[in-house]
Simulated scan of single mutants.
Amino acid sequence: MNAPVVFDGHNDSLLRLHVDGSQQAIDAFLAGTGPGHIDLAKAESGNLRGGLFAIFPPSPQGSIDFSRMPPGGYEMPLPAPLETAIAEAATIGMASILFRLERGSNGRLRICRSVADVRAAWAADAMAAVLHIEGAEAIDPDLAMLDVLHAAGLRSIGMVWSRDNVFAHGVPMRFPSSPDIGDGLTEAGERLVKRCNDLGILLDLSHLNEKGFWDVARFTDAPLVATHSNVHALCPVSRNLTDRQLAAIAESKGVVGLNFATAFLREDGAMDADTPIETMVRHLDALVNALGEDGVALGSDFDGAVIPAPIGDAAGLPALFEALDRHGYGSALIEKIAHGNWLNVLERTWKAPGDPR
Rank of each mutant, 00 (worst) to 15 (best):
M1D: 13
N2L: 15
V6F: 02
D8W: 05
N11M: 02
L14Q: 01
L15H: 12
L15V: 06
R16V: 11
H18Q: 10
S22R: 12
Q23E: 15
Q23A: 15
A25C: 11
A25Y: 08
G34E: 04
A43Q: 09
A43T: 13
E44Y: 08
G46L: 05
G46R: 03
N47T: 03
L48N: 06
L48S: 04
R49G: 04
R49K: 10
G50V: 01
G51N: 02
S59G: 12
S59D: 15
Q61V: 14
F66R: 01
R68Q: 15
P70Q: 02
P70W: 01
M76V: 13
M76G: 00
L78T: 14
L78R: 11
P81C: 12
E83P: 05
T84P: 03
A87Q: 11
A89H: 06
T91G: 03
M94V: 00
S96A: 15
L101F: 01
L101M: 02
E102V: 01
G104V: 14
G104W: 08
G107P: 02
G107D: 12
I111H: 00
A116I: 13
R119D: 12
W122H: 14
A123L: 11
A126L: 11
M127K: 00
A128S: 05
H132N: 02
I133Y: 00
I133E: 00
E137Y: 07
A138I: 08
D140W: 05
P141Q: 13
P141Y: 12
P141N: 13
V148I: 15
V148F: 04
H150K: 07
R155Y: 00
I157G: 01
D164S: 14
N165Y: 08
H169E: 12
H169N: 09
G170I: 07
P172S: 06
P172F: 09
R174C: 05
F175D: 03
I181Y: 06
I181M: 04
I181Q: 10
I181V: 14
G184A: 12
A188R: 08
C196H: 07
G200A: 02
L203F: 04
D204Q: 04
S206V: 12
H207T: 10
P223N: 10
A226K: 07
L234R: 01
P236E: 06
E251C: 05
S252G: 12
V256H: 05
G257Q: 08
L258G: 11
N259Q: 03
T262N: 05
A263P: 00
A263S: 12
A263Y: 00
R266L: 01
D268S: 01
A273I: 08
E278S: 15
R282T: 11
R282V: 03
H283I: 08
L284W: 04
D285L: 09
A286M: 13
L287Y: 03
N289S: 15
A290V: 12
L291Y: 07
G295Y: 07
A297L: 09
G299A: 03
D301G: 00
F302P: 02
I307M: 01
I307Y: 00
P308T: 04
I311M: 09
I311P: 05
A314T: 10
G316K: 04
L317C: 09
F321S: 05
D325E: 15
H327P: 03
H327V: 07
S331A: 15
A332I: 13
E335N: 11
K336W: 06
H339L: 08
W342T: 08
N344G: 09
V345S: 07
L346M: 12
R348L: 08
K351F: 11
A352K: 13
A352N: 14
P353I: 10
